[in-house]
Design a protein around this nucleic acid. Structure first.
Lengths: 111, 111
DNA sequence: TTGTTAGATCAACTTCAGTTGATCTATGGT
DNA sequence: ACCATAGATCAACTGAAGTTGATCTAACAA
């Protein structure tokens, strides 16, 4: 089922990990899912109903998010619950913070 | 030239603004550019050289980033300097923080 | 004014990500 | 054992996003 395959996300985020997470967030359907998960864990069947998405479509997007390390799954009998990964969100926040830190330096004139 | 067309980015980020910014970040070429700009403002000609990108390719990606509100341009004679927008990075950080806030709620069992 | 350079823009092409419907697997109920 | 349901997976299709080379415009230098 592949539900156990996660990105690692230990220590400070590498550019490539950040990119995977950003990509996992930067899609309208996935953003809906993220917002649904923002208030806590949800099972797939609820998501399908609430967001009015075709089952295979939702499953595809959950996979993208899972493989990026943005969400994780908990299997309970016949149902699967998904939730956002705090470490991913925190990691991305930190990564953005680093970018913001030095971005106001003036340019060396190039002419 | 279109260099003056920016996204607004006042107040808390709307989902759609966040998505544009995320998309602007979630590309390998653009991520290179972002990292080059992380240490401060740079002119396009420097970027082209340092990142070894075709001129039209870089210009395309700068446009995407500009229209998303991720970067802004400063025209100086024949040269154009780009820099990351603090408000965009801060806004995105805040947006992520909101997501992280409630994401650990347990699921309502759906069976 | 002519020539050169920086960088935006355009059109044609290519590539990859998302969609759809069908099928497959596992779990639980009868 | 049989059936129903949750959700993953697959193959075919579609469309949007990125690439490439050419052209266009504006600024400066001679």
């Amino acid at each position: 089922m592949g539900v156990g395959r996660y990105a690692e996300l230990v220590g400070p985020l590498e550019a490539d990990q950040a990119r995977q997470l950003l990509k996992a967030l930067a899609d309208p359907v996935r953003l809906q899912v993220v917002q649904a998960l923002a208030s806590g864990e949800r099972c797939v069947c609820d998501l399908t109903g609430d967001l009015d998405l075709a089952q295979s479509k939702l499953s595809f997007h959950l996979k993208v998010m899972r493989e990026a390390g943005l969400i994780e799954a908990r299997v309970e009998g016949r149902w699967i619950y998904y939730r956002l990964r705090r470490d991913a969100l925190d990691g991305l926040q930190g990564w953005l913070g680093e970018l913001a830190a030095g971005c106001s330096e003036p340019a060396a004139p190039c002419g």
